[in-house]
Computed example of a mutant assay.
Amino acid sequence: MKNWFTPTLPANRRFGAAMVAGFIGGNISSFVKWGTEIPFPPRTPDRGIPPKDMLIDMGVNAQETIYHFSEHVINWGVAGIHHLFSIVFALLYCAIAEIFPKIKLWQGMAFSLLVTIGFHGVLLPTFGWAPPLWDLPAAEIFSEVFGHALWMWTIEVFRRDIRNRMTGLPDAEYMK
């Protein structure tokens, strides 16, 4: 059995298709992640929203990054951070999948666990945007793990389908 870091053959990689898939999958999966936050809110009502706190720390007045839709006030700054996160990580995932196919373990959901731990366990607490992982309520951990799993699975579905449709070829590790 090949190990985690056994790369594919360079001639079998299709980075152009991977980037198209990552961009489209990242956009669509962002809406999937937001959708999981309706039935399973990711934090208690008394806590700030990490993307809003990030904007404030960058010197952006997050209260001014709004637009109105159907008489609702939407914070495009917060939504933009969330959406950009999704696209960047989808592009990264799709590029890595071309080189190291083991990243696709459990249809990408293993990668989603790494992202969840990296952000909610390390990055957000380090910058004071969220409590340490051990202080998070179980409901928040469930929401983030579940939401990120569906988010990444969506990216993997788009990655595989778009790559295969664009190239007419199987994934890099299956090519001779």
Rank of each mutant, 00 (worst) to 15 (best):
L55R: 05
Y67D: 10
M58W: 15
Q63S: 13
K33I: 13
E71Y: 11
K33S: 13
V78M: 12
P45F: 00
P39W: 07
A18I: 07
F23M: 04
G35P: 02
F31R: 05
E71P: 08
A11F: 01
P10G: 07
T65W: 03
E64P: 01
E37W: 12
P51V: 04
S29N: 11
G16P: 10
A17Y: 00
M54I: 15
I49Y: 05
I38H: 07
V78R: 13
T36H: 06
R43D: 01
M19I: 13
A17I: 02
F15A: 07
A79S: 10
L55D: 03
G77R: 04
P50S: 05
K33Q: 14
M19N: 10
I38N: 03
Q63C: 00
P42Q: 08
D53M: 15
W4R: 12
S29L: 03
P10H: 12
G16S: 13
T8I: 00
A17D: 01
F15Q: 13
A18Q: 00
P7H: 10
G80P: 02
P45Y: 05
A62Y: 03
R14K: 09
R13V: 02
A18T: 08
P45M: 04
P41V: 05
A79G: 10
Q63M: 07
A17K: 00
P7L: 06
R47Q: 11
G80L: 05
E37D: 14
E71V: 10
G26Y: 02
Q63Y: 03
